[in-house]
C-alpha cells in the first residue's frame, strides 16, 4: 500500500493513522498535532480506529513560529 504523507509517497505498512503517527513521530497521540486525510480533518479520538487505504493523502501538521 502506498500513501502520500506530507507530500511524499510512503510505502506504508501502517494499518491505522495511529500506527502511521507512531512510525513517523514515535507517538500514537502526539500533543499539538492535527491530521487530515484526503482534505478532511480526522479528530484525534478517531486516529486509533481510522484505517488507511491505498492512495490516501495524509497531512500531519503542528504549530510553528508565524506572524
Amino acid at each position: 500500500m502506498t500513501i502520500t504523507c506530507n507530500g511524499e509517497p510512503v510505502a506504508a505498512d501502517a494499518a491505522t493513522l495511529a500506527d502511521l503517527l507512531a512510525h513517523r513521530l514515535g507517538d500514537t497521540r502526539p500533543h499539538g498535532v492535527a491530521v487530515a486525510v484526503n482534505e478532511e480533518v480526522v479528530p484525534r479520538d478517531a486516529w486509533a480506529s481510522y484505517r488507511l487505504a491505498d492512495g490516501d493523502v495524509v497531512e500531519v501538521v503542528t504549530a510553528v513560529q508565524g506572524g
Binding site: 506530507n6 513521530l25 502526539p30 504549530a63 510553528v64 513560529q65
Partner: peptide, 27 residues
C-alpha cells in the same frame, strides 16, 4: 500570540508550543 500551521516530521518542533503554553498566552 499568532502561530502558523505546518507539516511536521518530528516532535522536536513542539518546543515552541510548550513555551507558549507555559507562558499562558492565548493562541
Amino acid at each position: 500570540v499568532t502561530v502558523s500551521i505546518r507539516r511536521t516530521s518530528s516532535l522536536a518542533e513542539g518546543g515552541l508550543l510548550a513555551a507558549l503554553r507555559a507562558a499562558g498566552v492565548r493562541l
